[in-house]
């Protein structure tokens, strides 16, 4: 089991950025049948979704989230020495999307920038990497961006995925804090399920797939649900035990917003009261791993933002799953915005 404790860092803030275009699933009854849409909406809990227009990418969304966060934190660009961008929706195979954001934000040459290819589990993985870099020395401040545009993966004839996914970018700011609280992480993988969520074509194994369906996401819904109910409850239990805490000690459980039915089942199985598990599916859909950040910036209502100790949980494509149990300062910057496309880029 991969359990880690990282001391001496602080999550200074989290920002999210969603595209302005709203798709109402009830308008798609003509494509998939009204009953079918009603069933999926009722089970998945996705009434509306935010999706990007052609030409807008996860990198764009992450950039605006990062710009807003830096503005709020008043962090000088020169103080940032690490930029991690977690995504499975890159602009290009090469270069890394993080290098583009590095330019647009005007970050210094002394900043390490790299991409990490993870999806639904990406948030706790990204947070762990950023905190471990801080702990390793040589860094004071690191940005961890996580963005996805799953709406661009879905085949128009596949209602199970088309009605589910939305798009989102996020930025999280971490800094060294020698007296800061400890963060607890558990990161795991079951590669035997690598084809449970897969886009078979477009990569170097099959650059130009003959089967057009291979250009889109294939999802084994039952297999993924099975994986989730097997793996997530022990993940939460083991992380809490490692931190010597109970469910009641955690103010909010910020889950990857996968599907309302699955999340409610997990909450029940793990003994997590639903009022401590924010849902954003209704308005935003499943926006992949960055939805963990949205649960924090948007899902927690203003009155509940005093939540201090939060467990972030990601699970899905890989198959990969992970948790991050961290404490937030009362002054942590939490902000959510709609993508404008007008924020100045260097």
């Amino acid at each position: 089991m991969s359990l880690s404790r990282v001391d001496g860092f602080r999550l200074a803030g989290v920002a999210t950025c969603a595209p302005p275009l709203v798709v109402d699933n009830s308008d798609l009854g003509k494509d998939f049948g009204a009953d079918e849409v009603r069933k999926v909406v009722s089970m998945a809990g996705v009434r509306r979704r935010r999706v990007v227009e052609p030409g807008i990418t996860a990198t764009d969304l992450c950039f605006e989230a990062a710009a807003a966060l830096l503005e709020q934190l008043k962090w000088p660009r020169e103080s940032i020495t690490g930029l991690i961008l977690v995504t499975q929706s890159p602009d290009y195979f090469l270069p890394s999307s993080s290098c583009m954001v590095h330019k647009w934000l005007g970050l210094p040459d002394t900043c390490a920038a790299f991409d990490v290819g993870l999806g639904c589990s990406g948030y706790p993985y990204g947070l762990y990497l950023a905190s471990a870099m801080l702990k390793a020395g040589g860094h004071q401040r690191i940005l961890m961006l996580h963005g996805e545009t799953p709406s661009r993966f879905t085949s128009p004839d596949d209602h199970a995925t088309t009605l589910l996914f939305g798009d989102l970018g996020s930025a999280s700011a971490l800094e060294l804090a020698p007296d800061g609280p400890s963060g607890y992480f558990c990161l795991q993988t079951d590669g035997t399920g690598y084809d449970g969520l897969i886009m078979r074509g477009g990569g170097f194994r099959d650059r130009t797939p003959e089967n057009p369906r291979h250009r889109y996401l294939e999802m084994d819904g039952a297999g993924i649900f099975n994986f989730t109910i097997k793996r997530v409850p022990p993940l939460i239990r083991d992380t809490l035990a490692f931190a010597n805490l109970n469910v009641s000690d955690v103010d909010a459980f910020l889950f990857h917003q996968s599907n309302r039915f699955i999340m409610k089942h997990l909450a029940k199985k793990c003994g997590v009261p639903e009022e401590r598990m924010p849902f954003t599916l209704d308005e935003f859909g499943n926006s992949g791993g960055p939805s963990v950040a949205l649960a924090l910036t948007y899902g927690l209502r203003e009155a509940e933002r005093k939540a201090r100790r939060v467990m972030m949980v990601g699970y899905g494509v890989g198959l990969s799953w992970g948790s991050a149990l961290v404490e937030l300062n009362a002054d942590a910057a939490l902000t959510h915005a709609t993508y404008s496309g007008t924020v100045a880029r260097l």
Binding site: M43, A222, F225, N226, I229, F261
Partner: peptide, 8 residues
């Protein structure tokens, strides 16, 4: 969808 209910 019924399979998911059954599994739950």
């Amino acid at each position: 969808l019924g399979v998911l209910t059954l599994m739950a």
